[in-house]
Design a protein around this nucleic acid. Structure first.
Lengths: 99, 99
DNA sequence: ATTATAGTTCGTAGTTTTGCGAATAACGAA
DNA sequence: TTCGTTATTCGCAAAACTACGAACTATAAT
C-alpha cells in the first residue's frame, strides 16, 4: 500500500515552473518574450551582463521546464514562449493566487 | 558611470518570490495557507514526508522571502500568509502573466 | 575548401540547496 | 524545579545551481 501522497501533481507542477522563473536573468527573458513574439539569443547576449555560455544554460533551463522553445534559423536560434505551456502556467498561477 | 541595469527591480522581486515557491513542499504550505487562515508547524510535520528540521528550514525560507509569517503561541508557532506581501505577489504575477 | 558567425557543450570552481539526526532553546504544566 | 512538548539551530554530506572561458558543432558565405 502506497503512502497517501499529500502533495498534488499540480503543486509539483507549479513548483517546477516557479523554480524555472526563480532567477532574474530567466525572468528577464520570460518577460521579454511575453511582450514580443520572439527574440534571438544574440540580442540577449548583447544586453545581459553574462557570458554567452551562461545565457545558454539559462535558456536551456527555461526550455527544459517547458516555458520557451527554440527554432533554428541558421545560424541563429529564434526563441519564443511555449504557447501551450504558457497557458497552463497562467491557469495554474491564476488558480493558486486568485482564489 | 554605471552600466545601464537591464534587469528591473520588479523582475528581481518576482524571481525572488518564484524561487521561494520553487519547491513542492513550500508550494504545499503556501496553498494550504491561501485556503485556511493559518496552520501549525506540527500539523504539517504529521502529514509531510520530511523531517521536522527540514520542514523548519522550508518555513524559514518562506519567511525570509516574505511570503509567510510566524506568531508564537507557546509552545507552538502559528503560521499565516504575510498578507501585505501576498497582495504584492498577486499583483506582480498577475501583471507578468496576464498582460 | 576556407572563413566567419552563432550557439552549445565541456571542464572547472565556488556557492547554495536539500536533507537528516543530534543537540539546543523556550515555555507550560506538574 | 523538573519534565514534556514544540520548534529551531548545528554539523554534516550529497546534489544542484551559477558562472566562466575554451573547445567544439553547424551553417552560410566567400
Amino acid at each position: 500500500m502506497e503512502p497517501a501522497e499529500v502533495i498534488t501533481e499540480e503543486q509539483k507542477s507549479i513548483a517546477r515552473f516557479a523554480k524555472a522563473m526563480g532567477h532574474p536573468i530567466r525572468m528577464y527573458v520570460l518577460e521579454l518574450l511575453s511582450k514580443q513574439i520572439c527574440c534571438y539569443s544574440g540580442d540577449l547576449t548583447e544586453v545581459l551582463p553574462i557570458a554567452k555560455s551562461t545565457l545558454s544554460q539559462h535558456l536551456k533551463e527555461l526550455k527544459d521546464a517547458g516555458l520557451i522553445q527554440g527554432e533554428i534559423e541558421a545560424p541563429k536560434i529564434k526563441y519564443c514562449l511555449n504557447q501551450e505551456n504558457w497557458k497552463l502556467v497562467q491557469d495554474l498561477f491564476n488558480g493558486f493566487l486568485n482564489t
